[in-house]
């Protein structure tokens, strides 16, 4: 196994930095009782794929909306031998990704990486890595709104009943409305899925481009929503099907240009404005994947 990579030039704290005098955190910050509670919730979630398990979300050193759910899940499953990767919108080097990675470095001392294939545990915000995952890997998603029907039915008492009775007509109403209004299903992010033929789940705001990756994935996928206090899971090799209509089936996004840095034609592209004149550049959202392709000889068109 390579040495964990330190990102050069970011001014990031080296992993061997000691905690400041007076600081005394448990491994991965959370106390053992809390971890036990969260692990129980995770076990239940794995036993009932797609079902939202309530849990006692703790106060974390960052506010709601910044990934507290994902962090709590990671903190409950991370062990000293894990190799940890964090991405935010596909990139390892955004401020959020860096901060979360630092947090776990300081509180666990685990090895960190930017290579998907080297990680055992990956926390992500809003993307699934382009490199296929393998058995033994764990992907932790940060989830803002766990309830897929929330916009249509804000009453939680009612959505709980709908899930328990598998009454999902309402979800299809939303898709119907999209087609009526826009001529196609408008959700491009957080596209609802049916897990294990039983529960409808929000996959978190990943682009629908990523949805097919969830289906029969060999890795364990865990989802944490801190503010809403819910955990759910998709165990390895679970069916994850995208909702749609027979005559308006689910379709993933496509671009008519390749990545302008590595030449890939099969990845999710970000459109970046590079100067004040509005010049646009399409590049892979998954920074690690793009970099690996460049190193392997992929070229810009």
């Amino acid at each position: 196994m390579n040495e964990p990579m330190l990102l050069a030039g970011t001014g990031e704290t080296p992993m061997h930095e000691t905690l400041a005098a007076g600081e005394n955190f448990n491994f991965a910050y959370l106390d053992e009782r809390t971890k036990r509670m969260i692990r129980r919730a995770i076990l239940k979630a794995i036993a009932i794929p797609g079902y939202q398990v309530p849990f006692g979300s703790r106060e974390m050193p960052l506010p709601y909306g910044w990934g507290t759910g994902g962090i709590q899940v990671t903190a409950s499953v991370i062990g000293p031998l894990d190799v940890f990767k964090v991405i935010d919108q596909g990139a390892d080097d955004t401020v959020n990704a860096i901060n979360i990675r630092r947090f776990f470095e300081r509180t666990t001392g685990v090895k960190i990486t930017t290579h998907t294939s080297q990680a055992t545990l990956i926390q992500t915000r809003h993307r699934i890595p382009e490199d296929p995952l393998t058995e033994g890997q764990v992907l932790v998603y940060q989830v803002p709104v766990p309830e897929p029907m929330q916009r249509l039915e804000p009453r939680e008492a009612e959505t709980r009943i709908l899930h328990s009775l598998a009454e999902y007509g309402l979800m299809h109403v939303k898709l119907y409305e999209d087609i009526a209004k826009h001529g196609h299903i408008a959700s491009t992010y957080d596209y609802p899925v049916m897990v294990n033929n039983r529960y409808i789940m929000s996959p978190s705001p990943i682009p629908k481009f990523d949805n097919p990756k969830m289906h029969l994935n060999p890795a364990l996928q865990l989802f944490g929503a801190g503010r809403e206090k819910r955990i759910y899971a998709v165990p390895p090799y679970t069916t994850v099907e995208n909702l749609g209509f027979e005559d308006y089936p689910f379709e993933i996004q496509s671009w008519n240009v390749p990545c302008e840095i590595c030449g890939a034609t099969d990845t999710f592209l970000d459109e970046v404005i590079t100067d004040d004149a509005g010049t646009r550049l399409h590049m892979c959202s998954d920074s690690n994947h793009c970099e690996a392709r460049q190193n392997a000889g992929g070229v810009a068109p």
């Binding site: 999902y168 007509g169 309402l170 299809h172 119907y176 087609i179 209509f245 027979e246 005559d247 308006y248």
Partner: peptide
């Protein structure tokens, strides 16, 4: 739709 009709 609640009964499974899936053709828009």
């Amino acid at each position: 739709m609640g009964l499974g009709h899936r053709h828009y």
